[in-house]
């Protein structure tokens, strides 16, 4: 097992008395796509800036590619490609010129530069617009150019801050597919921050949920939903043709089922909360007892639910001292 490529230890950042990032510990392994998920103002961007050495942490350590980002930002910046959330370009220069400029700043030798820039533009699908002024670029094209900007230095790690912000759904899908493909092909480590759950859900191997400067939970989707809803267990809701006249009528039928933890009845819908997944058995039982089933629904928790739950608890915690 190799050392994690991004290592944050007890990272804390204070703006005045306000805690932007609070004692953050996080490891991201090589080749992984990690999603940093949190509402606006959760400290995502601050964390990213500290990883790049653009902001000094008040306390703690940010280590990227084996370098201390605060002490040695140059080495880190050489290996890390960063796309800021509102990426801007020099409006009076064309896409190609913008890219060449960044290439030169990264010390790419002049003789291979043109070819490399053209290749990068090809990767992100901007070859047709290479000589257009960036002032005329749409948001989606700017994001693509931003990605090209990141890729031209052939980084080991890509950090994308809100990469999906302001692009239309089709554009988002393409963009994320591109990121995923690049990560898989070149073994890049990707860290992307977003407050958009679906986007993160689509591409990320692992997700960290970040609220009020604290990392509330971290892991892949299953692990996260396990952590959150483990207590709640599996929920199956079954809709019947007719409303149940007496909820009590079910009681003798269900007696002796140890897996069922809770049953709630709402008109013609019954919701079972169980410690195991027993949906087929439940259906059979109801059918045998003469109920007509119109719909069976097994609840799967998506990131949205996870997020919602964490977000709520985060707000409560933050709100209580006030």
């Amino acid at each position: 097992m190799k050392d994690p490529i991004i290592q944050l230890k007890g990272l804390t950042k204070l703006y005045g008395s306000q805690k932007a990032v609070d004692n953050l510990n996080l490891n991201v392994d090589q080749g992984e796509i990690f999603g940093l998920l949190g509402p606006n103002g959760a400290g995502k961007t601050t964390t990213i800036l500290m990883m790049l050495g653009l902001t000094e942490p008040t306390k703690g350590l940010a280590q990227v590619c084996g370098y201390n980002a605060t002490r040695n930002p140059m080495e880190v910046k050489r290996k890390v490609g960063y796309m800021p959330d509102s990426v801007g370009f020099y409006d009076n220069m064309s896409a190609m010129e913008n890219l060449l400029y960044i290439g030169r700043l990264n010390g790419i030798p002049e003789d291979g530069l043109q070819a490399r820039a053209a290749e990068t533009l090809e990767t992100v699908g901007l070859t047709a617009d290479r000589d257009k002024k960036t002032a005329a670029f749409s948001r989606g094209m700017k994001q693509r150019l931003g990605l090209a900007d990141v890729l031209i230095k052939q980084p080991e790690v890509i950090i994308l801050d809100e990469p999906t912000l302001g692009i239309d759904p089709a554009g988002v899908k393409d963009f994320l597919a591109l990121i995923k493909q690049l990560s898989r092909q070149q073994g890049l480590t990707v860290l992307l921050s977003s407050h958009h759950l679906h986007h993160v859900q689509q591409v990320c191997d692992r997700v960290g949920i970040f609220v009020e400067g604290r990392l509330l939970a971290e892991g892949n989707m299953e692990k996260l939903s396990g952590q959150l809803f483990g207590a709640a267990g599996y929920v199956t809701s079954i809709a019947l043709e007719e409303p149940i006249a007496h909820p009590r009528a079910l009681e003798p039928v269900l007696k002796g089922w140890e897996d069922i933890e809770q049953v709630s009845v709402q008109e013609n819908e019954i919701e079972f909360t169980c410690s195991r997944n027993i949906t087929p058995a439940l259906v059979r039982l109801l059918v045998e007892n003469g109920y007509n089933i119109t719909r069976v629904n097994q609840k799967n928790y998506g990131l949205e639910d996870i997020y919602q739950k964490y977000f709520e608890s985060g707000i409560q915690k933050a709100g209580s001292p006030k």
Binding site: K77, Y82, G88, F89, I102, L105
Partner: peptide, 12 residues
Amino acid sequence: SGTQTRLMAQPV
């Protein structure tokens, strides 16, 4: 114009 962060993320 948002170019400053981009510039500073480069190794300069």
